[in-house]
């Protein structure tokens, strides 16, 4: 029996990968813990865009995530990512193009007609996708339950795979929190069909369509473990960035705000860590939906290989 701790994207992806390989799996989900950080995620599968700051391993391995999600949950839309910059920050677009691969130069209005006249140049990353993170996680959970995986609140009964994010910080001294803040807007007048990233030297933001006129605007990155609600400054920055992208957002309804803490290792690379009493899958940082499937599969493959399994147990 393997006991997966945590029901965020890390725990559900690990449990899915393990269950699919035939391991008996249970998921431990205490009722009193806060909602996982992944509920606030953008839900973008954007390995190429992330390469702007992320190391190569995230770009190369993350490309497997799209197929993984498409095979398991509905609503994964592959319409690519559009990247634009305000005219006076056009140099940012050139820098982004130099720092990334898998894009082509486009006229933004050809992809998103409502951006006509606002942005002359853009980059399209056609191999990227997006989905609704909460819907995807709910589906993954239902799928596990249908496969007979138990979700329990009590003490784990098997070997521990710890996917609790920052709740595992006591076991991982170099795990830190990177605060992120986001908004959800209802803007029926705005018609964007794919994630759009607005480059700005100080207030970069992305807008992810959630369907039905709803949009997620994200996300700040603050080196802080403060858990409280979203700050006025974050709201101002995110809204002004959204407004710069599309003035139609000015009349939007703010339907939700959220602030969460991303678990991150010093290199900001999600990782499996082997400890004597458990295996950690943690440090997903801003790459949860991209890297949790990859690490879940790596974990399952390692445990399935008899030799590796012995090594793992010997830790």
């Amino acid at each position: 029996m393997i006991s997966v701790l945590g029901t965020g994207v890390a725990g559900l992806c690990a449990a899915t990968a393990l269950a699919e390989r035939g391991f008996p799996v249970e998921v431990i989900a205490p009722g009193d813990v806060p909602a996982p950080a992944s509920h606030l995620a953008g839900g973008m599968l954007a390995p190429f865009c992330e390469g702007e700051a992320a190391p190569r391993v995230v770009v190369s391995k993350g490309q497997a995530a799209l197929g993984w999600w498409q095979a398991r949950v509905p609503g994964v839309e592959q319409r690519g990512t559009l990247v634009v910059a305000p005219p006076r920050d056009a140099a940012e677009l050139d820098r982004f193009a130099r720092a990334t691969q898998g894009h082509r130069a486009v006229s933004p209005a050809d992809l998103e007609p409502e951006l006509a006249g606002r942005f002359a140049r853009g980059l399209h990353f056609p191999d990227e996708a997006h989905m609704d993170p909460r819907a995807a996680l709910a589906h993954l959970r239902a799928r596990l339950v249908a496969q007979g995986v138990a979700f329990r609140e009590e003490a784990p009964r098997g070997d521990i795979v710890d996917c609790r994010g920052l709740a595992a910080a006591g076991h991982l001294p170099d795990l830190r929190a990177v605060r992120g803040e986001m908004l959800e807007l209802c803007a029926p007048d705005v018609q964007l069909t794919r994630p759009v990233r607005l480059l700005h030297p100080r207030f970069p933001c992305y807008v992810v369509p959630r369907g039905g006129g709803r949009y997620m605007i994200g996300a700040t990155m603050v080196e802080s473990a403060r858990p409280g609600p979203v700050t006025a400054r974050a709201v101002m920055e995110l809204l002004s960035a959204a407004y710069t992208l599309h003035p139609g957002f000015a009349e939007a309804e703010v339907i939700a705000t959220g602030a969460g803490l991303r678990p991150a290792f010093p290199d900001n690379i999600p990782a499996l860590r082997h400890a004597p009493d458990r295996i950690h899958l943690n440090g997903l940082y801003r790459h949860g939906f991209l890297m949790a499937p990859v690490l879940g599969e790596e974990l399952a493959a390692a445990l399935a290989a008899p030799l590796t399994k012995d090594v793992t147990h010997a830790h």
Binding site: R176, A177, V222, E223, S224, A225, R233
Partner: peptide, 13 residues
């Protein structure tokens, strides 16, 4: 200013 007193993990680095 923005990180406040809760930014200790980063400051330790």
């Amino acid at each position: 200013r923005r990180e406040g007193s809760a930014g200790d993990a980063f400051r330790e680095i």
